[in-house]
Protein backbone atom coordinates (compact mmCIF):
# COMPACT_ATOMS: atom_id res chain seq x y z
CA UNK A 1 0.00 0.00 0.00
CA UNK A 2 2.54 2.56 1.12
CA UNK A 3 5.02 1.93 -1.69
CA UNK A 4 3.14 3.56 -4.56
CA UNK A 5 2.39 6.67 -2.50
CA UNK A 6 6.01 7.72 -2.43
CA UNK A 7 6.05 7.95 -6.21
CA UNK A 8 2.77 9.82 -6.65
CA UNK A 9 3.01 13.27 -8.10
CA UNK A 10 0.52 15.42 -6.10
CA UNK A 11 -1.66 17.01 -8.76
CA UNK A 12 -3.78 20.08 -8.11
CA UNK A 13 -6.53 21.75 -10.10
CA UNK A 14 -6.97 25.49 -10.33
CA UNK A 15 -10.51 26.75 -9.94
CA UNK A 16 -12.24 30.05 -9.49
CA UNK A 17 -15.74 30.74 -8.26
CA UNK A 18 -17.06 34.09 -9.44
CA UNK A 19 -20.77 34.30 -8.81
CA UNK A 20 -22.67 37.45 -9.70
CA UNK A 21 -25.12 38.54 -7.02
CA UNK A 22 -27.62 41.36 -7.07
CA UNK A 23 -28.37 42.13 -3.46
CA UNK A 24 -31.40 44.25 -2.73
CA UNK A 25 -30.14 46.59 -0.03
CA UNK A 26 -33.53 46.98 1.63
CA UNK A 27 -35.70 50.07 1.96
CA UNK A 28 -33.69 51.47 4.87
CA UNK A 29 -30.40 50.66 3.13
CA UNK A 30 -31.66 52.21 -0.10
CA UNK A 31 -32.52 55.48 1.63
CA UNK A 32 -29.16 55.47 3.42
CA UNK A 33 -27.17 54.89 0.22
CA UNK A 34 -29.29 57.32 -1.82
CA UNK A 35 -28.59 60.02 0.81
CA UNK A 36 -24.86 59.39 0.45
CA UNK A 37 -25.14 59.61 -3.33
CA UNK A 38 -27.54 62.51 -3.77
CA UNK A 39 -27.07 64.70 -0.70
CA UNK A 40 -23.68 63.69 0.79
CA UNK A 41 -25.55 62.97 4.01
CA UNK A 42 -24.99 60.16 6.51
CA UNK A 43 -28.29 58.94 7.93
CA UNK A 44 -28.84 57.05 11.15
CA UNK A 45 -31.95 55.84 12.90
CA UNK A 46 -33.07 56.02 16.53
CA UNK A 47 -34.60 53.13 18.46
CA UNK A 48 -37.88 54.21 20.13
CA UNK A 49 -37.16 51.97 23.16
CA UNK A 50 -33.49 52.39 24.09
CA UNK A 51 -32.93 55.66 22.20
CA UNK A 52 -29.78 54.32 20.58
CA UNK A 53 -28.86 55.96 17.27
CA UNK A 54 -27.59 53.40 14.78
CA UNK A 55 -25.49 54.07 11.69
CA UNK A 56 -25.85 52.85 9.00
CA UNK A 57 -29.57 53.28 9.71
CA UNK A 58 -31.42 50.13 10.78
CA UNK A 59 -34.94 48.94 10.41
CA UNK A 60 -34.99 47.18 13.79
CA UNK A 61 -33.22 47.27 17.15
CA UNK A 62 -32.00 43.76 17.90
CA UNK A 63 -31.63 44.40 21.63
CA UNK A 64 -35.12 45.86 22.13
CA UNK A 65 -36.58 43.76 19.32
CA UNK A 66 -38.73 46.59 18.00
CA UNK A 67 -39.16 48.45 14.70
CA UNK A 68 -37.27 51.68 14.16
CA UNK A 69 -38.93 54.43 12.16
CA UNK A 70 -37.17 57.66 13.21
CA UNK A 71 -34.45 58.92 10.88
CA UNK A 72 -31.56 61.01 12.20
CA UNK A 73 -29.18 63.01 10.04
CA UNK A 74 -25.70 62.69 11.52
CA UNK A 75 -22.84 65.12 11.22
CA UNK A 76 -20.24 63.74 8.80
CA UNK A 77 -17.75 64.13 11.62
CA UNK A 78 -16.78 62.16 14.65
CA UNK A 79 -14.12 60.58 16.83
CA UNK A 80 -11.80 57.63 16.16
CA UNK A 81 -12.83 54.86 18.57
CA UNK A 82 -10.44 52.24 17.18
CA UNK A 83 -8.14 52.05 14.18
CA UNK A 84 -5.53 49.89 12.53
CA UNK A 85 -2.97 50.70 9.86
CA UNK A 86 -2.89 47.91 7.31
CA UNK A 87 0.51 47.03 5.82
CA UNK A 88 -0.41 44.17 3.48
CA UNK A 89 -1.86 44.38 0.03
CA UNK A 90 -4.71 42.33 -1.40
CA UNK A 91 -6.99 42.76 -4.44
CA UNK A 92 -10.09 42.99 -2.21
CA UNK A 93 -8.79 46.24 -0.72
CA UNK A 94 -10.12 49.42 -2.37
CA UNK A 95 -6.83 51.27 -1.81
CA UNK A 96 -3.11 50.46 -1.75
CA UNK A 97 -1.50 50.02 1.67
CA UNK A 98 -0.60 51.55 3.97
CA UNK A 99 -4.10 52.75 4.82
CA UNK A 100 -6.24 52.52 7.93
CA UNK A 101 -9.56 51.08 8.97
CA UNK A 102 -11.30 52.96 11.72
CA UNK A 103 -14.41 52.64 13.82
CA UNK A 104 -15.68 56.19 14.00
CA UNK A 105 -18.26 57.42 16.51
CA UNK A 106 -20.07 60.04 14.44
CA UNK A 107 -21.49 62.99 16.34
CA UNK A 108 -25.02 62.07 17.35
CA UNK A 109 -24.55 58.32 16.87
CA UNK A 110 -24.25 55.65 19.56
CA UNK A 111 -22.42 53.00 17.53
CA UNK A 112 -19.16 52.96 15.59
CA UNK A 113 -19.10 53.49 11.82
CA UNK A 114 -16.53 51.42 9.95
CA UNK A 115 -14.60 53.17 7.19
CA UNK A 116 -11.22 54.04 5.72
CA UNK A 117 -8.58 56.63 6.53
CA UNK A 118 -6.02 57.18 3.78
CA UNK A 119 -3.98 60.21 4.86
CA UNK A 120 -1.88 61.33 7.85
CA UNK A 121 -1.51 57.75 9.04
CA UNK A 122 1.46 58.65 11.24
CA UNK A 123 -0.72 61.16 13.11
CA UNK A 124 -3.60 58.78 13.92
CA UNK A 125 -4.60 58.29 17.54
CA UNK A 126 -7.65 57.02 19.36
CA UNK A 127 -9.92 59.92 20.21
CA UNK A 128 -8.90 62.24 17.35
CA UNK A 129 -11.62 63.92 15.32
CA UNK A 130 -12.16 63.00 11.66
CA UNK A 131 -14.56 64.08 8.93
CA UNK A 132 -15.99 62.32 5.90
CA UNK A 133 -14.63 63.14 2.45
CA UNK A 134 -17.18 62.27 -0.22
CA UNK A 135 -16.21 60.84 -3.60
CA UNK A 136 -16.65 63.02 -6.65
CA UNK A 137 -18.46 60.30 -8.53
CA UNK A 138 -21.14 58.72 -6.35
CA UNK A 139 -23.24 55.70 -7.34
CA UNK A 140 -25.08 54.70 -4.15
CA UNK A 141 -22.54 52.59 -2.30
CA UNK A 142 -20.55 52.77 0.93
CA UNK A 143 -17.50 54.03 -0.99
CA UNK A 144 -19.48 57.15 -1.95
CA UNK A 145 -17.68 58.25 1.20
CA UNK A 146 -14.13 58.12 -0.12
CA UNK A 147 -12.58 58.05 3.35
CA UNK A 148 -12.31 60.01 6.56
CA UNK A 149 -9.64 62.65 7.21
CA UNK A 150 -8.28 64.23 10.35
CA UNK A 151 -10.07 67.48 11.15
Amino acid sequence: MSDWRKDVEPLTLKGQIAIPYTWHVGDVGSRFLAALRDEKKILGSRCPECGKVFVPARKNCGACFVDISEWVELKPEGVIEAYTIVHYSHPIQPVKPPFAYALIKLDGADVGFLHLIKKDLDKLKNGLRVKAEFSGERTGKILDIDSFELV
Binding site: W23, P56, P94, Y101, L114, I142
Partner: peptide, 14 residues
Protein backbone atom coordinates in the same frame (compact mmCIF):
# COMPACT_ATOMS: atom_id res chain seq x y z
CA UNK B 1 -21.95 42.64 5.36
CA UNK B 2 -21.92 42.78 1.55
CA UNK B 3 -23.59 46.20 1.41
CA UNK B 4 -21.85 48.27 4.08
CA UNK B 5 -18.57 46.53 4.85
CA UNK B 6 -17.33 44.09 2.24
CA UNK B 7 -16.34 46.80 -0.27
CA UNK B 8 -14.01 48.27 2.34
CA UNK B 9 -11.89 45.12 1.99
CA UNK B 10 -11.97 44.29 5.69
CA UNK B 11 -11.31 40.64 6.60
CA UNK B 12 -10.38 38.59 9.67
CA UNK B 13 -6.92 40.07 10.26
CA UNK B 14 -7.76 43.76 9.90
Amino acid sequence: DPIFHRFLGIEAIS
